[in-house]
Write a protein that binds this DNA or RNA. Structure first.
Lengths: 236, 236
DNA sequence: CGTCACGATAACGTATACGTTATCGTACGC
DNA sequence: GCGTACGATAACGTATACGTTATCGTGACG
């Protein structure tokens, strides 16, 4: 009987982000809720409940959960449903080690591809926006611009595998970055360091770009881990 | 009607490799067949056919296929079933770029962990076995020992994320490595280079270990890509 | 009052059912 | 003879059904 099972408490997710498949919709919706801390670490839910909430059957929910689990965002325990995974300081160390290795390599690969000025422009724009945001004390805008810079840099590497791996790292670290954003000293070095990387890319200095970006990531990593330690933030 | 649908042509897979779930069994079986070239690149099959062959329903087969697809081993096209993906020279370049970045980082991380002699021993054993295999002209044994070396090295990094990523790269490259194994000059440098990495780790030289392993991987990459180019091997 | 046994319950893993839709063969028109 | 329209077919995406099994409440016993 029951007409379209509409729980009213929950509007439908954006009908479909892409692909038009329910699995994709479920994946995108849940991923976003986790990244945006709508479902905070430790949040638990059963497959059936999720299916009801997302307005679909268990099948697509289940497949989406498997993917989220492989990406390290949730854990699925047989009789206890899924739970959103916290990120420990150790996890963050692992994640930043990966990011450091991969993004430094990306910078070097970008050099080898001899990108045109037009291809470099998004990097400069992002760096400029970071500076502006910092002046305006708009940390959210700063973080967004920073993300744009790193995103575009890996794109320039031309290595799909690497791009995907970096983005997964970024996803895992997202919440911790957001939380610590307002705890750390003004990220005033970052803009300069980014510019430095761009200069090295432009001048065709592969080793220099690698080293510069690696140093950039290592500094960021140290700062962030220090904060996690200082505030005993072990479950973000 | 029909009793247990047994096609007789196909014995059951090893009842279960681990986890005891049908999804896991399906995944392991199909992965192995792809790596071992039992299902060569371009091999196609429908979900229903696979289910029949593996003696289970479409559901677990489907979930296993999703995983294999995310790992880059197969492609799933809606009405055409799955097909085993070939690996192009460009793919191999991407894969080796990742491997280079990650394994070099792993070597450096291993240094920072100050491994004991006991922890280093498997590396030495593997290197020794490589030398022996080379003397005996047993290339398969050489490849196996080489794999053991690299496997243990990343384990020493202590970074789970990195370990997983490297293993996926290894999977993707497996077939191409096997095919080219007998085409390239005797890998006589490798043993020395491995020893070199071990020495650097033992002496606590982080930068040295990084550079040494990076050089090792870059040489291997160059040699392999040259062969792919030379023999126009673009679909392994 | 604490411990343990047991049975109801329900969550999951898998199987099956079903509607939609792309594909392919066939027949028709030119 | 070739190109195109159309309909049968079947593969997939999703929904639903079902058996197994872990969990948890209840009650008996120490």
């Amino acid at each position: 009987m029951k007409a379209p099972p509409r729980t009213a408490a929950q509007a439908d997710p954006p009908p479909d982000s892409a692909g038009g498949s329910l699995v994709e919709a479920a994946y995108q919706t849940m991923r976003r809720r986790i990244l945006d801390n709508v479902w905070p670490p430790g949040y638990r839910a059963l497959e059936q409940a999720l299916a009801l909430e997302l307005g679909m059957s268990r099948t697509p929910v289940r497949e989406a959960l498997i993917r989220l689990a492989r990406e390290g965002l949730v854990e699925v325990i047989p009789r206890h449903g899924m739970s959103v995974l916290p990120v420990s300081a150790d996890d963050m160390r692992d994640i930043y080690e990966m990011l450091t290795a991969l993004e430094a390599m990306a910078a070097e690969l970008a050099v080898r591809r001899r990108p045109s000025e037009a291809q470099l422009k998004p990097l400069l724009d992002a760096s400029r926006d970071m500076g502006r945001a910092l002046k305006a004390n708009d940390l959210d805008a700063w973080a967004a611009a920073d993300e744009r810079f790193h995103q575009h840099l890996i794109t320039l590497s031309g290595n799909r595998l690497l791009i995907e791996a970096v983005q997964n790292c970024w996803d895992r670290a997202h919440r911790a970055r957001m939380v610590t954003l307002r705890m750390r000293p003004k990220p005033t070095h970052s803009t300069r360091e980014h510019m430095d990387v761009v200069d090295k890319i432009r001048s065709g200095d592969a080793r220099g770009a690698f080293d510069a970006h690696r140093a950039h990531r290592e500094r960021g990593s140290r700062e962030l881990l220090a904060i996690l330690e200082q505030y005993r933030l072990n479950n973000l």
